[in-house]
Nucleic acid binder design. Structure first.
Lengths: 228, 228
DNA sequence: TAGATTGTTAATCGATTAACAATC
DNA sequence: TAGATTGTTAATCGATTAACAATC
């Protein structure tokens, strides 16, 4: 326990940002394969992601992929290595807490299975929706959260409750064994170090947009003003 | 036009990451005010965001806020400066394209007005929903996109169409005058330099989670294995 | 006063980019 | 061969953190 990094572990030098790029590479590789290509170059991947090709090659090197000069990376090997690096071949159970509009939309989001996520249940407190199904996921009362997480060894918790309930539900998920939380509530959750929290920060996004437009309009006002 | 940075502009040294933090500061400041506090310290803000207090002070300095030793930042002034920096006092018109599950959830998302976003319409091609309203936003045919954007001087486009349509709809929005795009399609949109694209990358998030659990399970497998 | 807190400089850290030799 | 492409080192860039004097 607590071994300080394994020399065998093939994933070193794979930064958070690199990991976020892997799925885009993967989609492009699959697309290239469908088009009949046998190889794909760092240049082509880079153009699609609007990044530099050096960065692509670094990412590829980090997952132990070796390319061929003049040709690029072999498609099949690339797809295999990307799936492996992303952990796409494993299946993980997931629950969702908070079946409001956003929770409902996520339950109907069709891509979970591509990532090996299997929804075992969704939780809420509103009696009128409990017992119904959304996209084949049964809505259960939040009182049963702990039992379900333990019984199904659920590793992923999707948090779409309102901000006031978020930390409490988070704690309950973590206590019953959840290892990663996809958080949509505008709050920075406190969790043990070994639990991953991924924040989907809508408010942060809207702030960035609002701040940008503010800058634009200032610039425009300046341009229209006669010089003093 | 094209002045290379204005000495007057009070927002320099405000990085993308800083901007994303502003709304969290803002919520905390409002909460502190409701609790009757007259000041709020960088330490308290930092604890809530799980970051260091130095970083908070840097952010505050970047928006020209000056604190008082021993007390912290005056609440009212802080709230005012944060609203100003985020551009929250301005109103911007927005449209949404693609009224699927996610688009519907966003239309029902209640927080747009807090950011000064006013939804003027949502667009789709499915005749059966055109003409209906979701949260007081009328669903219109995508053919009318350009007209509406131009007439209302819409600056914000929310993109929840499927990936194959995304670049095309993006181009149409940009061409009619949209200045910022909140993109939920898993694609890196090509736009002119003066158009902001904010990607809400669900696939990237799921990849990070999947990769993390893969690492966890490997570590666990290693711990359970007898040493060779 | 002593202690808490700000403001700011310098150091650190980590990710991206430039440069270029190696290879097919 | 010439040219395209990889792989890798070193440089750059930008954000975070540490350190500490200044202040109330």
């Amino acid at each position: 326990m607590n071994k300080p990094k394994d020399a065998d572990d093939p994933i070193v030098g794979l930064s958070r940002s690199s990991i976020e790029r892997l799925y885009s590479y993967y989609l492009l590789a699959i697309y290239a394969k469908q088009q009949g290509s046998s190889h794909i170059s760092s240049k082509r991947l880079a153009e699609n992601l609007l990044i530099g090709d050096t960065q692509v090659r670094k990412d590829m090197a980090a997952i132990n992929l070796v390319g061929q000069p003049k040709r690029g990376y072999a498609i099949d090997e690339t797809i295999r290595a990307l799936r492996e690096a992303m952990g796409l071949n494993q299946v993980h159970h997931a629950v969702l807490c908070g079946v409001g509009n956003l929770g409902r939309a996520l339950l109907e989001y069709s891509r979970f299975s591509e990532f090996g996520f299997k929804m075992v249940g969704a939780f809420d407190v509103r009696e009128e929706i409990i017992g119904t199904d959304i996209s084949a996921t049964r809505i259960l009362h939040i009182d049963h959260l702990e039992q379900v997480v333990e019984i199904f060894a659920v590793e992923i918790g999707i948090l779409t409750v309102n901000v006031w309930a978020a930390q409490d539900i988070c704690d309950r998920m973590v206590k019953s064994g959840v290892k990663a939380i996809w958080n949509f509530a505008p709050i920075h959750l406190k969790t043990p170090d070994n639990v991953l929290v991924r924040n989907e920060d809508f408010a942060g996004s809207l702030t960035v947009i609002s701040h940008y437009l503010r800058g634009q309009n200032r610039a425009m006002a300046r341009d229209l003003e006669p010089p003093e």
